[in-house]
Design a protein around this nucleic acid. Structure first.
Lengths: 145, 145
DNA sequence: CCACAAACTTGAACCAGTCAAGAATTGCAC
DNA sequence: GTGCAATTCTTGACTGGTTCAAGTTTGTGG
């Protein structure tokens, strides 16, 4: 029986211990892209029963440090996590409902990383957030006709 | 006597009431770009005496809504405010000390706004945050030689 | 100058996230 | 299969930035 789910392999390759909470958290992030911490906790508990929020926070921190998940946190929003890492993509955030979608940058790779770095900073990552309105919110906020 | 400081005119042109707290907050944001709320409160109190933090929060919200200041909030950081609005520029954030500097986008105007909008979102703003290391932190974290 | 509405003060509550100490698991060696 | 050491999970409390609510003060138009 190949209980070696992809998540388990990912954990091992990152030299992290394989525990049920960790596998469940990683699966949850894979299943629900852009989920916030509360959603992840719910998802994990639905799978394992009781898991402390503390464990989830700790796991998410460990996964983030090891590059297995990426943490994104638009202004006025709680932290969200996604499993697509390494791929250089960005996000659209709806001002209405806060939903997030992935977008690839039109520029290609390493978008805008060639900023005119006036201030001597060593830039290693460019994070782009597009603000706008999702189709659903656009429809419900345009009753004007 | 031209007590009509630039801030006062800005407030009037935005149809906002001109009060001492508002003028002081607006001045503080102009004087200290990328200041967090606590710094703004200190600056305002140094100028006016006692002002409730609540007033500052309220003023900042009003100014943000009216486009007089811009709120920026990198992950793992408190809210910061800046007075340069309308100008399409972005920010470099130091992972070490959290300091922020302005950068103009290399692409020119409305950077990357031509994202491949796969999901039907109506994009109205592109926010770019460059992550890296400032000269000071780079120097202090490279004692390796 | 008056009256109304908007803005400020005070005080408390909120909530995501963090810290700390102890119990339970995991992975590895034998 | 067993046992040990280190890591990880649980429990519980706490922090700090931000927001909410009620009441008083201030600014602005008439």
């Amino acid at each position: 029986m190949s209980t070696t789910s992809g998540s388990e392999q990912l954990l091992r390759s990152a030299q992290l211990r394989v525990t049920r909470p960790r596998v469940a958290v990683l699966d949850a992030v894979h299943d629900h892209p852009h989920a916030d911490t509360e959603q992840i906790i719910s998802s994990v508990r639905a799978r394992l029963g009781d898991v402390s929020h503390q464990a989830v926070y700790d796991v998410l921190k460990a996964l983030t440090l090891n590059g297995l998940v990426r943490r994104i946190q638009p202004s006025s929003s709680v932290a969200r996590y996604e499993a697509r890492v390494g791929d250089n993509h960005h996000h659209v955030v709806c001002r209405g409902c806060g939903s997030i979608a992935d977008v690839d940058c039109a520029v290609g790779e390493t978008p805008c990383l060639t900023a005119t770095e006036d201030h001597g900073f060593t830039i290693d990552e460019a994070e782009v957030i597009y603000w706008g309105t999702c189709p659903g919110c656009a429809a419900s906020s345009a009753p004007d006709s």
